[in-house]
Design a protein around this nucleic acid. Sequence first.
DNA 1: CAGTGAGCGAGCTTCCGCTTGACTT
Length: 803
Amino acid sequence: MSKNLVIVESPAKAKTIEKFLGTDYHVMSSFGHIRDLADKGIGIDFENNYEPQYVVSTDKKKLVSELKKASKDAETVWLASDEDREGEAIAWHLYEELKLKKDSTRRIVFHEITKDAILHAIETPRDIDVNLVDAQQARRVLDRIVGFELSPILWRKVRPSLSAGRVQSVAVRLIVEREREISQFVPEASYRVNAIFSSVDSKGKPVELKAELPQRFATKVEALAFLETCIKAEFSVDDIVKKPAKKSPAPPFTTSTLQQEAARKLGYSVAQTMQIAQRLYEAGKITYMRTDSVNLSDLALGTSKAEIISMAGEKYVHIRKFNTKTKGAQEAHEAIRPTYMNAHTVEGTAQEKKLYELIWKRTIASQMSDAELEKTSIFISVSGSNLQFVASGEVIVFDGFLKVYMESTDDEQDTENESLLPSMKKGEKLSSVEIIAQERFTQKPPRYGEASLVRKMEELGIGRPSTYAPTISTIQNRSYVEKGDRAPEKREYNLLKLKAGKISDKIKEENTGAEKSKLFPTDIGTVVNDFLIEYFPEILNYNFTADVEKEFDNIADGKIKWTKSIDKFYKKFHPIVEDTMKNSERKVGERILGVDPKSGRQLSVKIGKYGPLAQIGTVDEEEKPVFASLRKEQSIESISFEEALELFKLPRQVGEFEGKVMTVAIGRFGPYIRHDSSFYSLPKTDDPMEVSTERAIEIIEAKREVEKNRIIKTLGENNEIQVLNGRFGAYFTFDGVNYKIFPKGTDPATLTFERCQELIAAQPEAANKKKPFGRKAAAKSDKKEKAQTKAKTTKAKATKAKK
DNA sequence: CAGTGAGCGAGCTTCCGCTTGACTT
């Protein structure tokens, strides 16, 4: 039995540390927090000075009893959770729950997992910082109060099962407001002028030079006037300016910057990035992946230096210490870096390799020299005008860190690759090849993607490295926000071109506004957001978290008692909750669009039981209202009167077939024809408003034909196996499960019952190999989770009933 | 697997932050 028990938060960390400490130390992991506020009810005793009611989480019961046993057997227990607010609280909860003794308990901390750091920590133990623990209790209780008092208001006033909270509601707000900025955006046009000049170099070889006019023209008249003067103008090199410039590497990765770069460079979602990073961490390949620190350990700096020298030479080394700029960063860990800097790559899946290499490059680059550039600008004067063209070029004099890594940016539209310019002399005459004035429009603000939302949240100090990915899935799971694409729209622009002394004037077309994998607010998200902003502006304020963080700091510094701080908040907050519950109106986002010209009744849109709907008439009229669902891409906020009216043209009857009517409508899976209680999907090429009787019959018969050919044969005494024709070729089903037929080229007609049994036996492995990511898997796990909690609650109910 | 949208109003839902598995199609 070991004399010492060390408890850390992460099992991977436990494994590493145990190696450093030797046989006298047994290292165990708490797997994060071991207990939390009680889940039934609010878990806070308001009568008793906000006393938190902590319970050991059900999935931690077994672990806690193991820890308890191990702590009893040990002479000394070392609480080595992270050195931040949550870590301190974890230590305290362990102390309380394991009923540890003060004399035999030590609190130690280290921010890097190196032998020196850990041995040093063991030599310098301290007590649990009660003030820091209290700051965490205040954080926890505040979040519980906000979440559990706001959510029920939404259940009553908007829709059941909704949620609100300090972090998620602000995240949704960002997206709703961005969407409004975009829809209110009015693009402004101006004319940008580019020119191509030609000359000959010293050897008499012709060279071309691209230049741009820094000024833009507001109107076509001005642009045209400038081109007119260019017809007769002489062009000459007025000045050549060379300026040295520097580029510095970005700091090593934090959780947030890793998520952004992995999204930009590798196209991963934030959840994906975290899953892959977790695997690399567990395999000991990288340091901890949930961190807000850009700091590297001395060990890492040393090995990086050695690596750079062997790779590129001494002059590429520039050791740097980065400082975090992030609001509220707690810096309990190092930056995300490779464990061993000399490993340029790792074994593993393609995704793991790519992410690892990204981390390796970023880390190495952060310790490399600046890149040195020379920027050249050639100013070209135009006779008869005081405007000047500018040609700019950039040459890398010394590549420095660019040898391994360049950070990406979000706006990749300005990819004018500035390169080497031909050498020119002052006063040199140039002739113009062509000069183009192109109408350009100001850009809409971009929608947030997952990673750019994380960046914004981090900037506002909202959320923590461990919660970025979960928060993003929460707001999507609650259907406040949807990830989606937007097809580009065509836009006309004007192009004026001066060539060979003539100006041409053309209208051209460009694509604009295409978006991929961006976050869009849903109607329910918008309605909930507007409701919360109306009644709880303080909580939804972007600075709310920053303000309460200051308060928590004061608690941590011992300047104020946590219960006092919470009391101050609650006394203000709770009355508003009560008042809103009593006096606010139900919010369904109703918009009245006008009057239906046919019936003369009111046309409106709102959120209904099953989602957004349009409605003709009102419930208080004698005649019942008529309803129609909004299409997937429509929203209450932006739908027009005409578009809403259009919805009522379906379902529409398209005639009779075999004595039964055929109706065309649009359902969850798109347009369909219903006939004799069967459904027939409309091909994309058919417009549901136009489909004729003949065409509808054609579609029905086509599907029947496919159905007829679907069954190849049936096998087994009760036909329990069916061999069928599917979209991807023949397959067979048994007991509701589909099975592949192999080897390839097998004639399905020759299959026997016995052969099918063999194939069934062979399939489970094949099915297990493919692990799909994404919506399906997520929806599944969500469902399961729900089922589990349901089981839990029914169980709880049963035990209650027994009592 | 495609329709619904009043009601009797049961009993349910919900937060943030710290950690990893547990499941199948």
